[in-house]
């Protein structure tokens, strides 16, 4: 087990390093003269040089890279060019929206997908099993923002039960904040649930065809008992992997859903800063998100090792 953990940890660090270089080069390499872009067309050469000097943008790229990554490791994400606000402050103030949104969306997706996928795998001949498979097929084709628009049309405009958009902060009104998150979470959860249902269904189908399940059935267990006692632990592995990979998708969905419902979350901040060409803010925030996703995948990998001895003993 220690070897397994060490190997996964080393890969995690390598991945973070590679991603940071890629992001840095992508933003700095393709972005041209950062200072000139920020100041706009009418800026004088002196002003551009002054800004470049102030933020160290005139130094060689690799020096800037090590500077950035060194500060990042110490928790300093840099400052905004325009407002001089530390990026850390910008990010932290947005997390109270984005984290609850993302986590509740994921939980709702799993709450839908695990029972629905399992049921439709065990009852693929019955009408309800086929209906679930059909709904999940359709749900995969629905863009998350359209789901958001339709939900807000129904529950916000027609029925007037929930706000169609906007944000009430937690400290102003707890229930107000919850109410503004309900529709975004349902949109995210439904669409995520639709695609997860497919994976759960095929993982369960796969497990039910294995010899050990047949053996368990031969001892007199019903299909449900065999699944719960023998199958579930085996089906959990591919499902955990897919959930880990879906985190990246979920964050993409969060970006869009925050726009649909005008929630001032993390991804809206990135979007605004992309438009304003705030390269440091974008670069650091994007890197934080990537580290977060990679960290989740590291946890999934380690869980894999705990759940299944075959994985940690291989090679």
């Amino acid at each position: 087990m220690p070897v397994y953990i060490a190997r996964k940890l080393a890969f995690f660090l390598l991945a973070v390093l590679a991603a940071s270089i890629a992001i840095f080069l992508l933003i700095r390499g393709a972005g041209g003269n950062v200072a000139a872009v920020i100041l706009g067309k009418d800026a004088t050469a002196e002003a551009i040089n002054a800004l470049a000097q102030q933020y160290g943008l005139d130094r060689p790229l690799f020096v800037q890279y090590f500077d950035w990554i060194g500060n990042l490791l110490q928790g300093d994400l840099g400052r905004s060019f325009r407002t001089n606000e530390p990026v850390t402050d910008l990010v932290v103030s947005r997390l109270s929206i984005s984290i609850p949104l993302c986590v509740s969306g994921l939980i709702l997706g799993l709450v839908i997908a695990i029972p629905a996928g399992t049921y439709s795998a065990l009852n693929s001949d019955k009408p309800l099993g086929a209906v679930i498979a059909l709904l999940s097929q359709v749900g995969i084709a629905v863009p998350v923002f359209w789901a958001g628009i339709l939900l807000s049309l129904l529950f916000g405009v027609r029925l007037g039960w929930l706000p169609t958009g906007g944000w009430t902060n937690w400290d102003v009104s707890f229930w107000g904040a919850v109410r503004s998150l309900v529709l975004p979470v349902i949109s995210l959860g439904l669409i995520l649930g639709a695609s997860l249902t497919r994976y759960v269904r095929s993982a369960v189908l796969d497990v039910m065809n294995q010899d050990y399940v047949r053996t368990a059935r031969a001892t007199g267990m019903t299909r449900m008992q065999a699944l719960l006692q023998v199958g579930l632990r085996n089906a959990a592995l591919p499902i955990a992997t897919v959930v880990g990979l879906q985190i990246a998708e979920l964050i993409g969905g969060t970006v869009i859903i925050e726009t649909v419902f005008s929630l001032p979350g993390l991804s809206r901040m990135i979007l605004a800063n992309v438009a304003a060409r705030e390269v440091i803010v974008v670069q650091s925030t994007v890197m934080l998100i990537i580290i977060f996703v990679m960290f989740i995948n590291l946890i999934v990998d380690l869980l894999y090792g705990v759940l299944d001895p075959r994985v940690r003993l291989a090679r």
Binding site: L26, V282, V286
Partner: peptide, 19 residues
């Protein structure tokens, strides 16, 4: 594996910002 764990939507935003 590394590329898979970078959210595609975020990459697209960065590309749109730079090019």
């Amino acid at each position: 594996d590394i590329m898979l764990s970078i959210p595609g939507m975020v990459t697209a935003l960065v590309l749109a910002a730079t090019i």
